[in-house]
């Protein structure tokens, strides 16, 4: 029988299109979680301001913030899920090595991040429509600004994809040693209670960065580091033991 040669990029491409079909349930859960988030967003956030001449303004702010945060949560869960045994075993039923498996996973997560970013940013218009139709409230949204719309999608996708890399690393660590299942939440909760300044610093480093280029550099390097760490961890893992 003739022997075949395997090309890494070809294999990754095949695995990627395979995963788009195989992990389709992840996409339906994205839709589900965003619908729930839209429901939560319908109340909006209230605010009020008054002038010295007795004029008072009561605002109700609507935004897709909750949808974006929920989507990031979805990204975390999805990234962890695809590092688990059943998902890795799907790869090893067919042609793979550990690198191609991770690369195709990352491509899948990138696709999910882009999809999540686009839908999250579009959901504001659905919010606006629902508020108008069912709450009889005209929500002013200002003129449609195409560059800002694209900026919204890019920024959201960067956040979601970065969360994916965190989830993927957590998943990889858990695969190495199950004790990380306990250790990771303990670390996170511990850092909230003890090292409050660390969280504040992280928040300032990423979320408060007003320069797009700096933000891009920061978040891409972070994401790349997390994925590289995960790849090198998973590269030594045995499967189907």
């Amino acid at each position: 029988m003739s022997l075949s040669t395997a090309n890494l990029m070809e294999t990754v491409k095949k695995q990627y299109s395979f995963k788009l079909k195989a992990n389709i349930d992840a996409i339906s859960s994205l839709v589900g979680i965003q619908l729930v988030a839209i429901l939560f967003s319908l109340g909006g956030i209230g605010g009020s301001l008054s002038s010295s001449e007795g004029l008072q303004i009561n605002f109700n702010y609507y935004s897709a913030d909750v949808v974006l945060v929920f989507t990031m949560f979805w990204a975390l869960v999805t990234a962890i899920t695809i590092t688990t045994k059943p998902y890795r075993n799907h790869d090893f039923t067919f042609v793979t090595n550990r690198l191609s498996s991770s690369l195709s996973n990352i491509l899948f997560l990138l696709t999910g991040s882009l999809l999540g970013a686009v839908t999250a940013n579009l959901s504001r218009y659905l919010l606006q429509l629902i508020a108008f139709l069912f709450r009889d409230q005209q929500v002013y949204s200002g003129p449609f600004d195409f560059p800002v719309f694209i900026l919204g999608i890019v920024m959201s996708a960067l956040y979601i994809f970065c969360v994916c890399s965190i989830g993927y690393l957590i998943g990889a660590l858990v695969q190495v040693n199950k004790s990380f299942v306990l250790l990771v939440p303990v670390l996170i909760i511990g850092s909230i209670f003890l090292g409050e300044s660390i969280l504040v610093q992280l928040f300032q480093f990423y979320v408060m960065e007003p320069n797009f280029v700096f933000f891009l550099i920061k978040i891409l390097i972070t994401t790349a580091l997390f994925f590289l760490a995960s790849i090198s961890i998973l590269n030594r893992m045995e499967v189907r033991r």
Partner: peptide, 11 residues
């Protein structure tokens, strides 16, 4: 004056 405003996402 009551007003509903749509904000961009925090990102």
């Amino acid at each position: 004056i009551k007003l509903a405003l749509m904000k961009n996402v925090f990102a």
